[in-house]
Design a protein around this nucleic acid. Structure first.
Length: 483
RNA sequence: GGGGUCGUAGUGUAGCUUGGCAGCACUCAAGGCUGGGGGUCUUGCGACCGGGGUUCAAAUCCUCGCGGCCCCA
């Protein structure tokens, strides 16, 4: 038991969320700290999750006709500063390259914090006619934002991986529709891959993207009562088109500025998923993103060893045929109990135990990672039961998170109640005046800020007052403490 | 941006107050007995965050950095 204190998690999720997370990501071999503060090593266990999510979302993107491309990592200062609001938003955390070897560069280069500027400089060359539109491109890359706040692996890092999509349309109505469609891709990705339910809506003026007309977001709600932004889709209007001179001739031979959006999801989404599902035994992975979906732990005794291993190999073959990624842990130098703990820490959705007693009964013992539930399954049914159970686990994780989300939303009409509900880890649904100053003041007093406003808005009473400042309310909004 | 706290093998720690051979447990390596929830025995490898200073002597004291964690804004 002495070793358990070091190999296992030494704190509980409900007691010390932050320390629990720090230990979990290291002990599950997701993250290694690097010599550069705020930059983290994504180990294979973590990168695999990224690849699974990437593969799914990339499929949605391509099926919709969007093409992938790649733009340079470096952006000349003169380009970055073209759109004034945009640069104002990003300037404080841009990393700069001033030298090549010992030679000072004529113009310093920004390490991209996002690629609007360098992409739109090219877009201006490519777009001449309405026939060139829509132009819809995406890239999977890394970006650097030199955070001065406290960094946390996945959730806030100085370098991170993401995809950034950048589309251009001839009309605002097409743009609005597309911007919402991309948000829905994110909602689906969180739901289908990460088993994470989200709230979709529009960000406040204060929280929108630098240079955007409006920003749409998906927001997740964590078990510790904190909300976290999952992904965003920005309606950029004609702001960048004007700054970068992206114009086209329409059917009437009139010059018009184009309409643009940009949208992204990052490795932060992995952090959201980890925080959502994992427990005091370690990582809990939704089957859709798990590298190993089922691990077989054989119970080996000298006199039955060969028979058990033979059957175990059969199982691997059977399950592989059903596209279940299965690993047979036949390591000799660890006890079964050791292996149980290790695979639980790493989040493998299903454990299959196979020993001599099972062999006699022609069965295996299967154990769910998410609930700990154990049951015996006949060997001949295993290739049906396991895929079905993986589905069940995926849905069950989502359902559990959704239940928590729904039970946590409380409608609140005044400041006093808002303060009270925040203390009990609730997510607020409030009538709001929408003013940045009001949001700022509320944030200072309570530590909570606006998340987004749902697209389907309940009717506001005629004289409904803002929950925070008691001026006239104009919109229903979600507010919460954020991670 | 402000404050607190910590940094000793791969991990967790003792030693620091009062300077004097860096100790323990786990891991890891090799081998034996084992095996249905972190089993056990033997042997072995392995560390003072970095720079500078004080001193005969620095993990220990001073200083400047770097880094982790927490709280506040």
């Amino acid at each position: 038991m002495a070793s358990k204190d070091q190999k296992g998690l030494t704190v509980q999720k409900e007691n010390d969320f932050s320390e629990w997370y720090t230990q979990l990501i290291q002990k599950a071999e997701l993250i290694e700290y690097s010599p550069v503060s705020g930059c983290y090593i994504l180990r294979p266990n973590a990168y695999h999750i990224w690849e699974k999510m990437q593969s799914y979302l990339d499929g949605l993107i391509k099926a919709d006709g969007i093409k992938n491309c790649y733009f340079p990592l470096f952006i000349p200062e003169s380009l970055l500063t073209k759109e004034k609001k945009h640069v104002a938003g990003f300037a404080p955390e841009v990393a700069w390259v001033d030298y090549g070897g010992d030679t000072k560069l004529g113009e310093r280069l920004a390490v991209r914090p996002t690629s609007e500027t360098i992409m739109y400089d090219a877009y201006a060359k490519w777009i001449r006619s309405h026939k060139d539109l829509p132009l819809r491109l995406n890239q999977w890359n890394n970006v650097v934002r030199w955070e001065f706040k406290h960094c946390t692996p996945f959730l806030r890092s100085r370098e991170f991986l993401w995809q950034e999509g950048h589309s251009v349309f001839a009309t605002d109505s097409e743009l609005r529709e597309d911007t919402l469609k991309m948000l829905n891709f994110y909602e689906r990705t969180f739901r289908e891959m990460y088993a994470v339910p989200t709230l979709q809506g529009k960000k406040s003026e204060g929280e929108k993207f630098a240079g955007a007309v409006y920003t749409l977001s998906v927001e997740a709600f964590l078990p510790n009562g904190k909300a976290i932004q999952g992904a965003t889709s920005h309606h950029l209007g004609q702001n960048f088109a004007k700054a970068f001179d992206i114009q086209f001739s329409d059917e009437k031979q009139q010059k018009q500025y184009a309409w643009q959006n940009s949208w992204g999801i990052s490795t932060r989404s992995i952090g959201v998923m980890i925080l959502m599902h994992s427990d005091n035994k370690g990582l809990v992975l939704p089957p859709k993103v798990a590298f190993t979906q089922a691990v077989i732990v054989p119970i080996l005794f000298d006199n039955s060893r060969n028979a058990v291993l033979t059957e175990a190999h059969n199982l691997v073959k059977k399950l592989s045929k059903k596209n279940v990624s299965t690993y047979l842990d036949d390591r000799d130098d660890y006890t079964p109990g050791w292996k149980f703990n290790e695979w639980e820490m790493k989040g493998v959705p299903i454990r299959i135990e196979l020993g001599p007693k099972d062999l006699v009964k022609k069965q295996v013992l299967i154990v769910r990672r998410d609930t700990g539930e154990k049951k015996a399954v006949a060997l001949e049914k295993i290739d049906v039961e396991i895929p079905a159970l993986l589905e069940t686990i995926q849905h069950s994780l989502f359902a559990k998170a959704e239940k928590h989300l729904k039970e946590s939303i409380v409608t609140v009409l005044n400041f006093k109640d808002a303060e009270k509900q925040l203390k009990t880890e609730k997510l607020l649904f409030v009538p709001w005046c929408g003013k940045p100053a009001c949001e700022e003041e509320f944030k200072e007093k309570t530590g909570a800020k606006s998340l987004n406003s749902p697209f389907e808005q309940p009717a506001l009473k005629k004289d409904q007052k803002c929950f925070a400042c008691a001026e006239k309310a104009v919109v229903w909004f979600y507010f919460g403490k954020s991670y």
